[in-house]
Computed example of a mutant assay.
Amino acid sequence: MARKQYLVTGMSCQHCAASITEEVSQVPGVAEVNVDIAAGSVSVDGTDLDDARLRAAIVEAGYEVARTAAA
């Protein structure tokens, strides 16, 4: 299983986390999404993860990917 981790700006509450989790969970191959509001990070575990689609899902939820974090 692979892991992708992103630093995301604009998250401030559990609603933010839920929105991102809902959007990212719909990307093919995603098995688990973990949002850490305090750290501003989103970790995604799964198989054959498509970086562009994961970033697009975060943007679709209304947030900006600041950069990819080291997994």
Rank of each mutant, 00 (worst) to 15 (best):
S41C: 06
A66E: 11
R67V: 00
G29F: 07
Q14C: 09
G46A: 13
T47N: 13
Q26W: 02
L7P: 00
T68H: 09
D50M: 01
V42M: 09
S19W: 00
R55L: 05
G10L: 07
A56H: 09
D51I: 04
L49Y: 07
A38K: 12
T21I: 02
E64I: 05
G10E: 05
A17C: 02
A52Q: 14
E60K: 15
A2Q: 15
A38Y: 07
V27D: 03
E23I: 01
G10T: 08
R3D: 04
G62N: 08
T68P: 01
R3T: 15
Q14N: 15
R67F: 00
I37K: 10
G10W: 01
Q5R: 15
L49F: 08
A39T: 10
I58T: 02
V8G: 09
L49R: 06
A69C: 00
V30A: 10
E23A: 14
G62W: 01
V42N: 08
A69K: 06
D50P: 00
G40T: 10
V8W: 01
A66V: 05
T21P: 06
H15C: 02
C13T: 06
E22H: 12
D51E: 14
Q14D: 15
V30H: 10
G10C: 08
G40L: 11
I37G: 11
Q26P: 06
A56I: 06
S12W: 00
E22P: 01
S41W: 02
A69E: 11
Q26H: 12
D45V: 10
A39C: 07
L54F: 06
Y63I: 01
N34H: 11
Q14L: 12
E23N: 05
M11E: 01
M1D: 08
A17P: 00
T47C: 05
V33E: 11
A61T: 03
K4Y: 11
T47K: 11
G62Y: 03
A39W: 07
Y63Q: 05
E22V: 03
V24M: 02
G40Y: 08
S19H: 04
R55A: 13
A31C: 07
C16E: 06
V35D: 04
D45N: 12
E32T: 10
L54G: 10
T47H: 11
S41L: 13
Y6S: 00
R3S: 12
V44Q: 06
E32H: 12
R53N: 14
A71K: 09
R67T: 00
Y63F: 14
A17T: 05
A18V: 03
E32F: 05
L7R: 10
D48G: 14
S12L: 02
A2V: 11
A56K: 13
M11W: 02
A31L: 14
V65G: 10
A70S: 04
Y6Q: 00
G62M: 05
R67K: 02
V24A: 03
V27G: 06
Q14M: 14
T47G: 10
A71H: 06
M1S: 13
L54A: 06
V30C: 08
G40W: 05
I20W: 04
G29Q: 07
V27W: 03
A56V: 05
S25F: 01
K4H: 12
S25M: 03
T9S: 15
A69I: 02
V30L: 07
M1A: 11
D51G: 08
I58L: 01
A18P: 03
L54H: 06
G62I: 04
A38G: 12
R55E: 15
L7E: 11
S19C: 00
